[in-house]
Design a binder for these strands. Structure first.
Lengths: 137, 137
DNA sequence: TTACAAATCGTAATGATTACGATAATATAA
DNA sequence: TTATATTATCGTAATCATTACGATTTGTAA
């Protein structure tokens, strides 16, 4: 997903296009990994001094709801990244820089066999560590 | 892991045994699934009216550190359960009652092949949904 | 260009968790 | 068993991320 895809989604759902919304999208497009609300605030402060928390969190929440962003929880903070809609997969997440690498393995087919009578709603499979670039630092 | 195993661990590490510590352990032993700090406070208030947050969170943190409890994050709150030390496995977690079912499948061996040069520190594989008992309610 | 719904602002409130100085309780050694 | 050192707990305030809200501004469609 990129910024213009995302704007298209918002328009189709009747949400308005604003400068802040576009900048939030390009921030995540450029980020290519997980970022926190704080990271986003810091970025937007450069352009929009004194931007409201309301704007930050409302839009993060909205983007997550319409599938533009996906979220995960790391050290007590929510982290967000551009959603990869292409196909189902999981991520290696670098604890240092937040960048991700796609993992194609998903064990859910096999797991379901051992969960008859259980109603599966969701699953999470994430690998944490240091990416090659962050190991040398 | 049960309460007496856990007390043994604490003793061996030089931590003192108190009534509250024992009660916290038996709470989690009885629970057989994930519980929040709030759940624990509610339980302990019955016996120890006005128990301090400090006691709750300090002990949860300690038990997690020494491997008595394991933790996960669900809807913005930390959830804790007795650690199953026997062997490596993952969990189905019921969103309603917090009870868990062990999943023996772990795809990490296979995943590692696609992560050469990545330093893997940790991984999480959890399945969420409703257990048979909670579906009928 | 107008009008109205939606977005943002500025700031206060919330909720989970952490922190801390004072006090109490436990374990150990005499 | 008693003294003593160390650890645990208390009571409460502080912190941190996130949510909420009335007032104001802005985008969009007619």
């Amino acid at each position: 997903m990129n910024t213009s895809d995302a704007i298209e989604i918002l328009k189709n759902k009747g949400y308005k296009t604003t400068g802040k919304r576009k900048d939030i999208l390009s921030f995540f497009e450029k980020a290519d990994g997980y970022r926190t609300a704080k990271d986003l605030i810091q970025f937007l402060e450069e352009t929009y001094e004194g931007i409201s928390f309301d704007t930050i969190y409302r839009n993060l929440h909205l983007y997550n709801e319409v599938g533009i962003l996906e979220a995960t929880e790391l050290n007590g903070e929510k982290h967000f990244r551009m959603n990869c809609t292409s196909h189902h997969h999981h991520h290696f997440i670098c604890k240092d820089c937040g960048k991700t690498k796609e993992i194609e393995v998903c064990p859910m087919d096999e797991v379901q066999k051992s969960l008859v009578n259980y109603e599966i709603e969701d699953h999470k499979f994430e690998i944490y560590g240091l990416c090659p670039a962050c190991q040398s630092i």
